Amino acid sequence: MPDEALLAAITSAVYRGVLVELFVGEEADQLLVGHAQRSYYQSLLEAGVVVHLYPAPTVLHGKYLTVDDRVALIGSSNMDFRSFALTYEIMLLAFGGDLVRDLQANDAAYRVASRELTLQEWAGRPWHERYLDNVCRLTAALM
């Protein structure tokens, strides 16, 4: 779950014309975390982030990103304060080479298996789902 600074960085990148894709599982393995994570989708979709939902029952637990065809970041860290500051997480920063290509190939496979979540679909959710997502978001700092 992104903090406000990371959310601003992601959305401002999209506003600058950067294609930002997010691959997430259609279902999470933890109820509270899953709903808290979903509470950010509205802002991301409104900004133009492409959200791909990977079909259940698979839970995507990979943590990586690629930038253009040159940079990759992969490791155990989530994109949250706990991972950055409180736990002993590790990330590898790579420039070029096979790792970037391999991760991009993985993205391509994810795209084929996933479906894109639209803002219209997300906005049409029942009120009780939105309520549950937002209540769980209040507990995000504890997770």
Rank of each mutant, 00 (worst) to 15 (best):
T118P: 04
V100G: 04
D98G: 14
Q120D: 15
D69A: 14
Y131C: 09
E129G: 04
W127Y: 08
D80Y: 00
P126Q: 07
Y110K: 09
S83F: 00
Q104N: 07
A105H: 11
T87N: 04
G96T: 07
E89W: 00
A109V: 08
F81I: 00
L86C: 05
E116N: 05
S76M: 03
V100A: 03
F95N: 12
L73T: 05
L103E: 12
Q104V: 05
E116R: 15
E129A: 11
W122G: 09
E129D: 13
N106I: 04
L132A: 10
V100K: 02
H128F: 07
P126R: 10
R115M: 07
E129S: 10
R130C: 10
D102E: 11
S114E: 02
R125W: 06
E121T: 14
R125V: 02
Q104L: 13
A85K: 02
E121N: 12
A72R: 01
D102Y: 05
Y88C: 12
M79Y: 05
D98V: 13
H128L: 06
M91L: 04
N78K: 03
E129Y: 11
D107Q: 14
A123Q: 15
M79C: 06
F84E: 01
F84I: 00
L103F: 07
A108R: 12
S76D: 02
W127Q: 08
N106M: 11
A113I: 02
F95K: 12
R130Q: 13
S114P: 06
Q104W: 08
Y131N: 11
V71K: 05
V112Y: 03
G97P: 07
L117T: 05
N78I: 00
A85W: 01
R101L: 08
S114A: 15
L117F: 05
R82Q: 08
L99M: 12
S77L: 06
I90P: 00
G124R: 14
A109L: 13
F81M: 02
H128E: 08
F84V: 00
F81S: 03
R70I: 11
A72I: 03
L132H: 07
T87E: 05
I90M: 08
I90D: 05
D80G: 01
T118V: 06
L92S: 11
P126T: 09
A72N: 03
L103H: 12
Y131L: 13
T118S: 15
L119A: 12
A85S: 09
